[in-house]
C-alpha cells in the first residue's frame, strides 16, 4: 500500500510537471549520449592499439656491403654471425616467431610496394637482409631492441613505434575531449535535475506540509521526488543507449562492412557490455546526487 502510494504520487508529479520532466529526460539523454560515445571512442582506440601492436614486427637489419661503418666495423655480416643472431632470437622468451628476409626477398617486397622510378635505381645488393620478429608481448618491444642492438652483424633495429606514437596521442586526446565534454554535460544535468526537484517540491509544498503534519516519515515525503528524478534520468539513459546503438549499428556498421576496411570497429556488443551499464549507473547516480543536493535544504521535517 505504501509503495503503491509512493509510486502513484511519483507519477502524479511526473505528469504535473510534464515539460520539466521532458527537459530532464532530453538533457540526460544528450549528456549520457556524449558519455557513452566517449566510452566507445576509448574502446575503439584500445582495439586499434591492440591491432597495430599485433601487426608490428621488430625488424633486425643485418650489415651489408653498403652499411654504415660505425655499426658494422667488420663489413657485411658473416654466415656465423647470422646463425648466432638467429639462435639468439629463436631462443629468446620474448620472441614468438622469426622470419628471415634475404636481400632478394627484400628486393621483391620493395618492387611490389615502391615506385617504378625508385625500383629502377636500386639493386638487391643495396637492400639489407633482415630478421622479422614477432613478439610474444608487443609491449616489450624496447627490451628486444636493446638486446639486439650491440650484437655483431646487426646494423640497426629501427623503432616503428615512433611512427605510431603521435597517432596514438591524437586518439588519446580525442578520447579525453569526448569524455571532458560528457563530464561538463553531466554537471549541467545534475544542476537541472536538482532545480527541477526543487521546483517540484515547491509546487507540492501543500502536500508535503500535510504529510509532515500527519506524521509521514522523511523517507516517505522525499522518496517520490527522488524517484521522479531517477525515473526521468533512467528514461534519458535508455534513450541515449538506443541512439548510441543505432549510431554504431547503422552508422559505423556500414563503414565496417567495406571490404578494404580490416580493423574491427566497436559494435553492438561494446554498446551493450561497455557503454550501457555505465550510462545507466551514471544516470542513476546523477539523479540521486541531484536529489540529495536539493532535498537536504528544501524538504526538512
Amino acid at each position: 500500500m505504501r509503495l503503491g502510494f509512493v509510486v502513484s504520487e511519483m507519477f502524479i508529479g511526473l505528469r504535473r510537471n510534464l515539460s520539466m520532466t521532458v527537459s530532464v529526460v532530453l538533457v540526460t539523454m544528450v549528456s549520457l549520449f556524449f558519455f557513452g560515445a566517449g566510452l566507445l571512442v576509448q574502446q575503439q582506440v584500445s582495439i586499434l592499439k591492440g591491432d597495430w601492436y599485433d601487426r608490428v614486427q621488430v625488424s633486425v637489419f643485418l650489415c651489408g656491403e653498403e652499411s654504415l661503418a660505425q655499426n658494422c666495423p667488420e663489413g657485411a655480416v658473416t654466415a656465423a654471425q647470422r646463425d648466432a643472431i638467429r639462435t639468439q632470437l629463436t631462443t629468446s622468451p620474448l620472441v614468438a616467431q622469426v622470419f628471415y628476409e634475404s636481400q632478394a626477398d627484400a628486393y621483391e617486397n620493395f618492387r611490389e610496394t615502391a615506385d617504378e622510378s625508385l625500383v629502377a635505381n636500386i639493386t638487391a645488393d643495396q637492400l639489407p637482409e633482415s630478421f622479422r620478429v614477432r613478439l610474444t608481448d608487443p609491449e616489450r618491444y624496447e627490451e628486444i631492441r636493446a638486446q639486439m642492438l650491440g650484437v655483431p652483424g646487426v646494423e640497426d633495429v629501427p623503432d616503428d613505434r615512433k611512427v605510431l606514437g603521435p597517432l596514438f596521442s591524437a586518439l588519446d586526446a580525442a578520447t579525453l575531449v569526448a569524455l571532458g565534454l560528457a563530464a561538463l554535460m553531466l554537471v549541467c544535468t545534475v544542476l537541472l535535475v536538482s532545480t527541477t526537484i526543487r521546483l517540484t517540491a515547491f509546487s507540492r509544498r501543500r502536500e508535503t506540509s500535510i504529510m509532515r503534519l500527519v506524521g509521514a516519515s522523511r523517507l516517505l515525503i522525499q522518496l517520490p521526488f527522488v524517484l521522479e528524478g531517477v525515473v526521468a534520468t533512467l528514461l534519458g539513459a535508455a534513450l541515449a543507449s538506443g541512439a548510441l546503438w543505432a549510431l554504431v549499428e547503422y552508422g559505423l556498421g556500414r563503414v565496417g562492412d567495406r571490404p578494404d576496411f580490416t580493423t574491427r570497429l566497436v559494435g553492438t556488443q561494446e554498446v551493450l557490455t561497455q557503454a550501457m551499464p555505465l550510462m545507466f549507473a551514471v544516470g542513476f547516480l546523477l539523479a540521486v546526487v541531484a536529489s540529495l543536493i536539493s532535498l537536504r535544504r528544501w524538504l526538512r521535517i
Binding site: R206, E207, S209, I210, R212, L213, V214, G215, S217, I301
Partner: peptide, 17 residues
C-alpha cells in the same frame, strides 16, 4: 513523525488537497 502521528491538527485555512 511518530510524535505527530499521535497529534491531529486543524487550521483556520483547512489545508485540504
Amino acid at each position: 513523525p511518530a510524535l505527530r502521528r499521535q497529534i491531529g491538527v486543524v487550521f483556520q485555512d483547512f489545508r485540504l488537497l
